[in-house]
Design a protein around this nucleic acid. Sequence first.
RNA 1: GGACCCUUAGCUCAGUUGGUUAGAGCGUUUCCUUGACAUGGAAAAGGUCACUGGUUCGAGUCCAGUAGGGUCCACCA
Length: 910
Amino acid sequence: MAEISKSYEPRDVEKKWYADWLKNDCFAGRVDASREAYSIVIPPPNVTGVLTMGHVLNNTLQDVLIRRARLEGKSALWIPGTDHAGIATQTVVERELRKQKLHRRDLGRDKFLEKVWAWRHEKGNIILEQLRRLGASCDWNRTQFTMDEHYSNAVLNVFTELFKRGHIYRGKRMVNWCPVSLTALSDEEVIMKPSNGTLFHVRYELVDQPGRFIEVKTTRPETIPGDVAIAVHPEDPRYAELLGKKVWRPLNRTKIPIIADKSVDREFGSGALKITPAHDKVDFEIGQRHHLPAIDVLNPDGTLNELAGPGLAGLDRFAGRKKAAELLKECGALLGEEAYSNNVGYSERADVPIEPRLTWQWWLRYPRIEEAKAAVRDGHIKFHPERWSKVYLHWLENIQDWCISRQLWWGHRIPVWYRKDVDREKLTEADLRDPAKVHVSLKGPADPENWIQEEDVLDTWASSWLWPFATMGWPDAKTMETAGIRYFYPTSTLVTGPDIIFFWVARMIMAGLEFMEPGKPLEQRIPFRNVYFTGIIRDNQGRKMSKSLGNSPDPLDLIEKYGADGLRFGIISIAPQGQDIRFQEERIEGGKNFCNKLWNASRFRQMSGPAGDNSSLAAILARLESSKFDADDHAILQRLVSTMAEVERCFREFEFSAAVQALYAFFWGDFCDWYVEVSKAKLQDESTKLNCLAIQDLVLRQTLLLLHPVTPFITEELWSQLGYGRDGAFLMRDVRLETAAEFTATLDTKGLSINRGLADSVEKLKQVVSQARALKAEHNQASRRDSSFLATAADADWAVLQANLAKLTRMCGAASIERRDKVDGAPAVVTPLGTLYLDLASSVDAGAEKVRIAKELEKLTQHIAGTEARLSNPAFVGKAPPAVIEGARKQLADQQAKRAELERLLAALG
RNA sequence: GGACCCUUAGCUCAGUUGGUUAGAGCGUUUCCUUGACAUGGAAAAGGUCACUGGUUCGAGUCCAGUAGGGUCCACCA
């Protein structure tokens, strides 16, 4: 065994072990009937993506779950992959083309797609490479891409099936149109943003009563040429006599009717609403009810077209708005303007206001809505934190059909062909189902020359909603068998952000229910059993991390600086359940420091004595001698067991940061700060040395196992260096972590049972040490081992002190601790095991000493008063549980004894 | 307009079913390079648990309300 270096250097260790794990196929998910299956599918990052802090959090959590599952003896599978990200990827490649002054139309569809594929092959795996640096133990041989042939096959299969089952239709409806991406978007891809605009007051002159006007307020005067009516509420007395009359539309002047519709809000503005069916969803519905035409005055790119009339045609919509206001002013129709703030829908991708636009699109009536609700409501799928289920259910209650077609080239082209002689603008629902007019299949028609394929592709989410089973080979029976879908599906846990609960989580549930194992009960068709929602990572000012703000650190820089384990440990420790995360680099630094502490504790063990047989838990236990156990041995084993139990609880309840904090407190606080320090005395004594080393070996072994899911690299390295592994075996793959219960039972059967009483007595020793150190600090004594202490103690207490004297002397920084019957004039502290005096050569400042003790006495007296008050309250004594009352009585007795001793000390000072 | 979340030490946050004197990390102050670790050790300072009521023997914890901050949903032009 080579000597361990003085500080932990992650770089080479990480590289070495990751390569070793890969070489030995440690990440492979295998069907193994003798083990419980545990599976996760990665939320596929965009192929265009680079690793963000969000990815780090999300994927570290998944890796933690997967690695813990392996240690628990489960057969674990983590499927990685990427998403083709239609709009984002197409935009990236189009931007490249623009540098060469080319547009995708210059290349044509096929040539353009070749370019995208080339880009994908060159750059599309960057993010997966970065995940490897993080230590992600994905089964890389199963890496998936949503545009892979078999995956595409699944997507198109689902389309044709859902079409057959009547869930998919084509319709001309109002959609959210992105004038930059030139495609329709789903409602979920539209973000409402408050915007400061202008509300224009416009008057429309009555045709048969010149000089009389009806007034409306609008934020969009440029759409006035598209007005086809003015609507008022049917019961609005102000306008009753105007119903049925006509007014002059002030732009592109023509006559339009005044109509009545109940959807008009009488309270808003003047109570009259201009109706522009082509440019507003409500107006469109009113238009439908009243059989009004829709006049579309916009081009797809958001410029005004010739229907907008001279003066406006050709302008961009925002320039057109200004111009329209000017034109209205010129003709006297503009009564005024007021500043106005309202919510405007923005395209999530392009970050520009969307246009409601009337277009032909493909729509999906979601399948299995009721089952999807039941799956979560009845607990077959558990959300963590649970409260997100309410958001989920609310969305399903109000669900709208999904616009699944996109006017893009990069994506799954819709497998629909139109007979050349049919007019697509006039296809009815019945025509769609007529194979003589429309062909829907994976392979296409037998006589392609007579057909034209649909140009549109599917929404990216209409492929990723199949992720949990399409990545396991669906729908091909043989591939599914190889992938082990019967074993690994439903997956165990999905780790994702609540921001895609509608986009992805809800839709995956519906897809799983619709397509998996038809006829089987719901709990076998759901895609996952648990969903863990991470928080959103914010910067230290609380802003979302984003590329444009430049406030997101590069995770790879952090790995360089703190090591992958440090980053992982840090990010998990600041990620409490369900709360957003304020990123602080200091916490990552803390992760690195923890790794260094672990490293050095192992180094201390190695330097403390010869290596024993560490090859198995049984081998280490065989080296323990219970007859040599002192209170500290019992205490550290007890804390080890309780930490194991706490970590188990944390994993059961998805409290990962609590698990990390428990491990930190145990290892740093209990092991390093106490046990290792007392070891220094125990190791001096040949009779206790070997047992003490074996305890250290045992604690280190269990700690490495518990920590491994969070800090995989350093634990694998130390596992190897400290001789825990057999040749060719890996901590991550070949070791099973005992449960706390199993561990305790093993100790019992080996005659190594933990003595609770002895273990608890360490608490008193710790207090003695802490108080002694404080006393020294109070009197400006350096913490070196050079102070003399005297003690007055009852026989029983002195016996405890004496039994631990060597350790205590060392821990207190004492040259000696001697018992006396009586000590006068020395500064003292009252400990649970007697009074401890600092034997100062120099004279003591009695005044300062009196102040210090008096202060402590005052504080104590307050507590005693509180305790006495409680105990003298008959209601408390009558109603509180006996254990609580007993505790209070004991506390009172201790406090009173301590008070008496402090009073005595005070009196002795004169 | 509806729903949900948050408010605890200078900062970022824990605090499980109500039960001794409310914790951690970072930061601050003092001391310490003692044979694992200065990426460290020891000690200390620092909190009317946002506010107001209520339930209870007992409330940071449960209930109601108020204030401030945040998120999501919603077709008010």
